[in-house]
Amino acid sequence: MAENIKTARILKFDIFRYNPAEPDKPPYMQRFEVEEAPYMSLFLALNQIREEQDSSLQFDFVCRSAVCGSCGMMVNGRPALGCQTLTADLPEVIALHPLPTFALIGDLSVDTGRWFRSMVDRVNGWIERETEFDRASIEAPMDNATADKIYEADRCIECGCCVAGCAVANVRPDFLGATGLNRIARFMMDPRDQRSEQSWFEVVSDSEGVFGCIGMMACDDVCPKDLPLLEVYSYVRRKAVASLFSSGEDHPARREAEKA
């Protein structure tokens, strides 16, 4: 392999440095040079930098196979997963920044967890039903097409790339973002969820929900898992309009929760 590459490139990484624990030290960009190796990913390059050049460099990786969603970062101004991005696909100078819209932990590391937790709390990201769940009984069958759609939506790894790449999310901290709308759509499609359209309505249709979105589809273009965010988006929109014309009762479970 290596023989095929006549002269390995010397990659120049410009990395955003800032540690919130040292607020007196203003953020700056630091350059690191790394010799490119065949099939090198940003994951490999960053680990090499940390091992050989600067042990204080902060960044996140867990699974290094685009499953855990912790290595989202801005690569030359575009959100991407560090483990999935090969340096061979990038120019010689590579600028890395933490994802905007999330709380910064330090350097390239951000706290997506808190954001996603608050999003799930807002949309009640779980199945709500009137009837008690009976563990012993056999689950009602679901048709294949629906199951496939739900599976597609469930493939979201909560990396936050769609939020970081979204112009609206960048100026409105409460905007649900594509992943939030995707989460809502997932439960809207689920026949086991008994929430009425009305009870969805308030979460979805708010200007921080689907109507805050202006359809620039950056989310769709940057999602590293290729989620069908365009379809999700128009689906939720049409649902919101439909619920405007339906006079469904609020879901009892929700009313109970409000009373309590």
């Binding site: 801005m74 101004g77 933490p98 808190r114 954001w115 960048n170």
Partner: peptide
């Protein structure tokens, strides 16, 4: 530095 990040010093905090 990408322009989107040049102006900002630190990404936004908690929500």
């Amino acid at each position: 530095t990408p322009t989107s990040l040049r102006a900002k010093s630190v990404p936004r905090g908690d929500r």
